[in-house]
């Protein structure tokens, strides 16, 4: 456990060296969020509520989901694995008494913790103050929300890990990466629009996919769309996906090791 903490701390430190990039990213994020906010204000002009969301609630939803979307920008574990395989650096990881999957999870936690502190929390605070957004209903909701966010993070990590492991077999994973992470995942995660607004068929599909557990679940808890015992159900579904995907990742990784062929010294 200590060693994985050390990895996380280390990744956190390394991220500190890319400060300027982070400011640029924050700036662009805020611009996009402003665009979404004005879009929804225009759409709601005169209406009271759509699918159970009034204007304040939908704005809260958008701000929280956009904030959580930052996980997608920060994590990039698939690309990290691809790079390690391409350069053969994976060899140096395999030589060490560590678990590759947990090591990458720890690294991901380290870099993401940095994003949480210097990107996500400031964004949330800024929009909360600027737009008088909703606060979670109770302390309990806050607690459940945080757990839900962490489970969503682990799910995203494992999806990325699975894609990354493909790099052991195929030369080029960028196509798959963009298709899954920036296509399917974005679409079904509900970052742009609450899933209640989706056509029935798509909403149903989203329900059976792990992607909604990354952004929609925690956000819906935050804005009070999922309450009471329903929250427990959502957490259990998230936990289910986290465990299943982690197991799949481990299985794929072990299969990859048997096939591993790294050329050169």
């Amino acid at each position: 456990m200590r060693k994985y903490l050390a990895f996380a701390a280390n990744a956190f430190q390394r991220t500190l060296t890319y400060r300027f990039e982070l400011w640029v990213e924050l700036f662009i994020n805020v611009l996009f969020m402003l665009i979404y906010v004005y879009l929804w204000k225009a759409l709601y002009n005169g209406r009271s509520a759509v699918e159970g969301y009034d204007l304040t609630r939908i704005l809260t939803y958008i701000v929280v989901s956009q904030t959580l979307l930052s996980f997608h920008f920060t994590l990039r574990i698939a690309r990290v694995i691809e790079e390690k395989v391409r350069t053969g650096e994976v060899v140096t990881d395999l030589m060490k008494p560590i678990d590759f999957q947990l090591m990458l999870l720890a690294t991901g936690v380290g870099t993401t913790f940095h994003t949480v502190l210097f990107n996500m929390l400031p964004k949330l605070l800024l929009f909360y103050v600027g737009l008088r957004l909703l606060l979670p209903g109770s302390i309990l909701t806050v607690g459940v929300f945080i757990i839900s966010v962490m489970l969503g993070f682990v799910i995203l990590f494992n999806i990325e890990f699975l894609i990354g492991i493909l790099a052991f077999w195929v030369v080029e994973i960028r196509g798959i990466y963009f298709a899954v992470i920036w296509g399917i995942s974005w679409f079904f995660s509900g970052y742009f629009l609450p899933l209640e607004h989706y056509p029935d068929l798509l909403a149903k599909m989203a329900e059976y996919l792990p992607f909604q557990a990354i952004i929609y679940s925690p956000t819906a808890i935050y804005v009070g769309r999922i309450t009471g015992s329903a929250m427990v159900g959502v957490l259990l579904i998230q936990l289910f996906w986290a465990v299943v995907l982690m197991g799949l990742g481990r299985f794929a990784y072990l299969a990859a090791l048997r096939k591993l062929a790294i050329q050169g010294g």
């Binding site: 050390a6 030589m95 060490k96 008494p97 010294g265």
Partner: peptide, 20 residues
């Protein structure tokens, strides 16, 4: 190739190895 972390001071790599 090196097993040290490219961006880190050497000592930090040693410390990390101590934990690993």
């Amino acid at each position: 190739r090196t097993q040290l972390w490219w961006d880190l001071p050497v000592m930090d790599s040693f410390e990390l190895l101590k934990h690993i």
